[in-house]
Structures are given as C-alpha cells and as structure tokens.
Design a binder for these strands. Structure first.
Length: 257
DNA sequence: ATGCCGTGGAAACCACGA
C-alpha cells in the first residue's frame, strides 16, 4: 500500500500533470496540499474518472488540502485542525482509508521571520502538537503526511548557512519537529535513508532543480501502531522535471498490508 | 541574493509561496 504526499501548487494549473502521475504510478492514497481552488472549483469529476474517491477542503486563492483514495471513498473525520475557531485557513483534513487514519497537513510557511506570519506558524505548530499527541497514542495506525514547511536538520537543505533565519529552518520550528518525534512519530523517509541527501522541493528560479538546490520539507510521520509496517520510502523526483511541474515532488511510503 | 518563477484573482497589478 502506497501513501503519498504531494504539494500540487495549484490544482487548476496542474490537473493534467496530476492525472498523468496518478495513471503512471497508481498510488493508493494521496494527500494533496496547496490546491489554490475554492471548494466548488475542485476538479472532482476528473479525479473520480481516474479511479479515486476524494474529499477536499478548498479555499479561494490559497491553501487547500485533499485526500484521494484509489477505488474507495475516504471516510472523513475532520477538516479543521482543532484549537482555534478563528483560523480560516484550509490547512488540515483527516480521514480513515483502508483502516489507516490519514492526517493531511499544509503547515504555514511562516516567512518572513520575525513577524506575524511566523507567530501564526508557531501557534499552528502548538495546535498540531496537541492533536498529534492524541493520534500518536492511538492503537489505530496513523500517518501524518504533508508539506510541513520544516527543514528538520542541516542534512535536509543544500546550503544550511543560508537558511538559519528562514522560517523553515528557525530553531523554534526544528524543535517542534523534535517534539513530534518524542511523541513517538517516525520520520519515514529519514528512518529508511539515514545518510542520504533527499529533497522534496526545488525552487522555480535560479535553476534550482537542475542544480539540485533543494529542501526536504514534505514528510510522512508514522505513529507507533503503524511504523512496523513501513517497507519503503522515497521521492518521485523525476516528476519535478515534467512539463509545468509543481515546485514540490511526490513523497511516498510503501506499507505492508 | 530575500521573489529572478509561478499561480490565482482581480485588474492590467498585487498577494503569496519557500
């Protein structure tokens, strides 16, 4: 069973790209972020025709998350991260799919640092830690997958010294990632590839993909009830080289049944 | 190097992303 997280960066502009990738790679579960589409403009019919059940939480212009499931319907559990009724961003959706609880995350970017956007990121992280503690302790298998906008360590960025005051690499944010791990979450890709240089994002400019000037910011975290089923993990980095690509690449895990 | 590209939405530019 293959579970993938993919920041699509505008599902309107990326639909053909997405459908090709679904057809070629046939992932079982897909967590999408940055739909950049209002609820009513999500291309539901095209995705269902490709053989996927789907739930989504759209928003005009920005954000937006979705969970796709091949051959069955995701069973929605929530479409908001608890803890702040004032938060109007579409950044979280959670469902049960084939006996696994899936939390699809689009964490705030937080730049520029310092400032209100960074403060919002830290508040969002606080809420995530609260919710994640419950999920980590659950006897049910859970994966938290998404664009975390967190570079966990120096190994996960092409030139760490350039990023020390960036909201993706600030110490507060990396410490939050460590706190997640201490709740029992396993960073699937890093666990299976402890020494490899692995990126999931390359900027659109400065020829970043060709230079391999990337970041590892898309993650799949497994709770203790699930981690024993982890068989493989990786990044479909060639997809970043397709026509009209997102700046992120699909990042995946393979689980035993 | 602090938006050079790219998207969406509104307006022929602006906000936002990482």
């Amino acid at each position: 069973m293959k579970i993938v997280t993919y920041n699509i960066n505008g599902i309107g502009a990326r639909l053909q790209n997405l459908l090709r990738w679904l057809t070629e790679r046939t992932p079982d579960v897909v967590c999408l972020q940055e739909l950049k589409a209002p609820q009513e403009k999500f291309p539901e019919a095209a995705i269902r025709e490709a053989g996927y059940g789907v739930i989504w939480h759209g928003q005009k212009s920005w954000n937006g998350v979705a969970i796709l499931s091949r051959g069955c319907e995701p069973s929605e559990l929530r479409r908001v991260l608890p803890g702040d009724p004032e938060d109007a961003h579409s950044r979280y959706i959670e469902a049960t799919v084939r006996g696994i609880k899936i939390g699809c995350i689009y964490l705030p970017n937080g730049n520029p640092y310092p400032g209100p956007k960074f403060d919002y990121k830290l508040r969002w992280l606080g809420r995530l830690l609260t919710h994640a503690a419950e999920l980590a302790a659950s006897p049910m298998p859970v994966v938290l997958a998404g664009d975390f906008n967190i570079i966990p360590t120096e190994k996960d960025v092409y030139k760490p010294e350039r990023w020390v005051n960036d909201a993706l690499f600030r110490i507060e944010v990396r410490e939050a990632f460590v706190r997640l791990a201490s709740q029992g979450w396993t960073d699937a890709v890093r666990t299976l590839h402890p020494d490899a240089t692995i990126y999931t994002f390359w900027d659109f400019f400065r020829d970043a993909y060709r230079r391999d000037a990337g970041l590892r910011i898309d993650h799949l975290l497994l709770n203790p009830a699930l981690r024993g089923r982890l068989r493989a993990a990786g990044v479909d980095r060639d997809v970043r080289g397709w026509e009209k690509p997102s700046d992120h690449a699909p990042t995946w895990i393979e689980l035993s049944e």
